[in-house]
Design a protein around this nucleic acid. Structure first.
Lengths: 219, 219
DNA sequence: CGCGTCGCGTCAGCCGGCCGTCAGGATGAC
DNA sequence: GTCATCCTGACGGCCGGCTGACGCGACGCG
């Protein structure tokens, strides 16, 4: 496996790097967020280890922007013990796991193995669903061969449905996915976006489960 | 979601239970491993919260034996801070996550959400009961191969029965399950919903115990 | 700086069907 | 038989959901 380590502490970074290499993986080590972004764009990585406090910015918004851009690589957050709220925000921002500093190197290995196992079957980039061809990573899609443009919110909504096809998602869940923890939204907003998505992608795509939520229709 | 909490500390257990309920889930709380085993055998659970130190044994070997027996329900371990080796052993034994005591209740919620999300795409457990195939998580079910639609209230009612198969549930209990604390309801309402469920799923499914309540018929 | 465009959150009005209620009949206990 | 309990068809209120319209703010362009 090839990993990306984003960590500005030289001592900790070296220890983590050595441990990963000792486990038989390879690792790219950067100390800044912009370098991390470049590294992800330049080459495929199987896993990202992300420190939350870096000289050029905070990890949480960075992670959020990654996820918003369709980056699906699993992320393990490295954070200090007392930042409980950071850990929660990290999971909500799309992290797969976190490690609390100081952590045991054997535990790091166990965590990496756990996340890697979880992602063993990698999904193919282009999803075909009915008459739709969806390329999540490139944010492009076509309906019956004709290209369709989606706005940012519409992509976020579609992402949420594609992540769990067939499963019911409550409006509260969708709201949580689309918005920051603290932004409050009129309850009807989700309905409006669902309506707009249906208009672009076909009314059958998203089924209403009255009183429960919405779900992606089977292909 | 329905969870199983295995925790012998009364104060911590109550706090966890309250938090889970506040999040809109239901929870069965036991304080011993043998009771936990019975509960898992008796009914479907979506998640297990497992303390590692219990009066009748250790959690790790218990978890190992569960996994060896094919039990796939996700497990979050609750453990004390200093037991690093236990955390690793827990993950190796098949736990999906752990929480370090003392933990923040909001973090508990986030962790539960994370694990639940992780399992959302996985094949859901399908309960087979007579001619019925019931997928509780996806809220889909079929009778003799033919799909059947249930309303929100009907699902809630079916949930209640499936949670305690074979056990008699009084109308008062069912009422408590289906409605908010403060909403008052005409006594006959439950009867009506039972009647509607029977019409959709078969009259034999729910047995009337005159003067006592209802119970799910054996498969 | 002013104007046009676009995304998105909010609102209001409509609509369909869920579900709470009722009443009359069926069933069971004794 | 008598009474309590339960069943179920019918009905309508109201609530959840849908969508066209509007306005605000961001952004781009001349």
């Amino acid at each position: 496996m090839r990993m990306l380590l984003v960590e500005d502490d030289a001592v900790l970074g070296a220890a983590v790097r050595d441990q990963i290499v000792a486990d038989g993986h390879s690792v790219d080590w950067v100390t800044r967020l912009d370098a991390a972004r470049d590294a992800l764009a330049a080459a495929h990585h199987d896993l990202v280890l992300l420190d939350l406090m870096l000289p050029d910015g905070l990890g949480i918004p960075f992670l959020k922007s990654l996820r918003a851009a369709g980056e699906a690589t699993p992320v393990i957050i490295l954070t200090a013990l007392d930042q409980v709220s950071d850990r929660i925000a990290g999971l909500k921002a799309g992290a797969d796991d976190y490690l609390v500093k100081p952590f045991d190197l054997d535990e790091l290995s166990a965590r990496i193995g756990s996340v890697a196992r979880r992602y063993a079957g990698n999904p193919n980039p282009i999803i075909r669903h009915g008459a739709l061809d969806i390329d999540i990573a490139r944010r492009s899609l076509s309906r019956a061969g004709r290209p369709v443009q989606l706005t940012a919110r519409e992509w976020a909504l579609l992402d949420a449905f594609l992540a769990r096809p067939g499963q019911i998602l409550s409006k509260a869940q969708l709201e949580e996915k689309l918005y920051d923890f603290d932004t409050e939204i009129d309850s009807n907003t989700i309905e409006v976006h669902v309506s707009r998505l249906r208009k672009k992608l076909g009314a059958e795509l998203i089924r209403t489960e009255r009183g429960l939520g919405y779900r992606l229709a089977p292909a």
